[in-house]
Amino acid sequence: MRITCPHCGARDAQEFSYLGAADLQRPEGMAASEAAMATYVYQRDNPAGVHRELWYHAAGCHAWLVVTRDTRSHEITAVEVAKVRKAGATA
């Protein structure tokens, strides 16, 4: 597989390591519930189709990326930098 890192360009998948679902929100703060955290830690969809997932460009720029990939065909339709997703965050 080739993943096009927004910083480095098209690279072999072996330069990256995989984490999983990209759109989970960590329950932050002392008020967070154990149940919400358990969901965050353990509950995952396993879609046959389009999946937004985190990849770390370990052998490249060390950026965490959100890769939109079809799990059936490995077609990659988008790669974004994870860090700039949150509103107010600077690149």
Binding site: Q14, A59, G60, C61
Partner: peptide, 10 residues
């Protein structure tokens, strides 16, 4: 320039 790996070495 590029950051990459050669023979599994960064």
């Amino acid at each position: 320039t590029g950051l990459t790996s050669i023979a599994h070495i960064g």
